[in-house]
Design a protein around this nucleic acid. Structure first.
Lengths: 219, 219
DNA sequence: TCTCAAGTGAGAGCTGCTATCGTTTAGCTA
DNA sequence: TAGCTAAACGATAGCAGCTCTCACTTGAGA
């Protein structure tokens, strides 16, 4: 087993939490206004909804000018959704043993990722989930992030396997796994079951797609 | 085999081609302006690119007012991308034999769909593909369409299998298949190989995801 | 031919987003 | 500590997508 965050993954993680270690005043201020904008946006959106919250209002609440908001975030959606998670999970993927079959490596990364969402990040995840489900623009951003993830993950796996970077089979595999994960994370579901349990069930489906419909698969 | 378009699928298909059968003058005019807007958009976009083409220009070229354009299409992206294909493929899915396992039904629908793209619709597909790849907004629309497709396809399959509509395993299966298809249709690839061949390779991966990385799979 | 409803055009207005420019402020150096 | 440089910021102007309203035109049916 080569589990354990270590190095790169840690660095990627601190980008999410936003720890200000030994930074200059300038950097710390930047980090703070960034968080101020985020916090203001979150509060206002909780109050009056995403669409009814304008950039102007967010800027005013964060005590900066609207132009500053766009200097920190390229679009309104980016304020509420970062793809730091991509770097985070990709670091994990790179750390997996090189002789692992692709599906095994992906399996490991997925469970690790979901464990994060089910653990410390669960509050954030819940909030983002409802936003992803409600707001098309945010949903679109998730899609973009996934596309990029598929691209780089395929490249990483291809390099390990000695295959060309645009190998179709690998891209399809990563695409399928990502599509499955997408349903677990953002898909429609009434029950609010444990994420880890859900990802396990999803992986079973991925590994035995034919078994569905047979009489031996009823939860 | 229960192939053959028949009935519902035909109706859904005519929505794409835009056949004006026994319609009143009003309906025919509506259909024509709709096509005029589409044609104007396509021409202008080919000339100066998507972002550089404004609604105003499209409206002027189609000889209608900008407000009329928005009466026909809810957004700029919708002008170039319809999801009539969704109805089309869903009709096929409903026509599959009820005792088929889900994956088999999906396999049939996928090949049928791709056969359409590779055949008569190939020109349209090529044009849309480059737009989907270039323009984020159009890409987002594809994502929305896919999400809806996954929802309804899962429901259809769940009903056939006697499972609850939000059954996780089914949603994951459909999500995975759709993710794989997405890579085939819109994913990055240098070679411009036959779509039908590509979908076959994708289905092999879906049915034997473990085989990747083993020495017996090199195209 | 008359009436009604569907379809259309014109205009105003909001919001996200970009670009420019002058001002303030942090960080480094002497 | 004084002063220079470059980063960060605010203000303003402007564009394009999109919505809404209202008056006008045109097709459909009596």
């Amino acid at each position: 087993m080569n589990q354990g965050p270590s190095a790169a993954a840690d660095a990627a993680m601190s980008a999410i939490t936003g720890a200000e270690d030994g930074l200059g005043l300038r950097e710390r201020k930047k980090l703070r206004t960034r968080q101020a904008i985020r916090a203001a946006a979150r509060r206002l959106i909780d109050e009056r909804g995403y669409d009814s919250t304008t950039i102007e209002q967010i800027a005013a609440a964060a005590e900066v000018s609207p132009s500053t908001v766009f200097r920190y975030f390229p679009s309104k959606e980016h304020i509420v959704l970062t793809d730091d998670y991509a770097n985070f999970t990709m670091a994990f993927l790179r750390e997996r043993l090189a002789d692992e079959p692709p599906l095994t490596a992906l399996r490991g990364v997925l469970t690790e990722m979901v464990r994060g969402f089910a653990g410390d990040l669960s509050e954030d995840y819940r909030w983002r989930r409802q936003l992803v489900r409600r707001v098309p623009a945010v949903r679109a951003l998730v899609g973009e992030s996934q596309d990029r993830w598929i691209d780089t993950a395929s490249e990483v796996l291809a390099e390990r396997a000695g295959l060309p970077a645009d190998n179709l089979e690998l891209r399809v595999l990563v695409g399928a796994v990502t599509g499955a994960l997408h349903q677990v994370l953002w898909g429609d579901r009434s029950e609010d079951t444990d994420l880890v349990a859900m990802i396990e069930r999803a992986l079973v489906v991925l590994e035995h797609p034919d078994s569905l419909g047979s009489p031996d698969t009823t939860g």
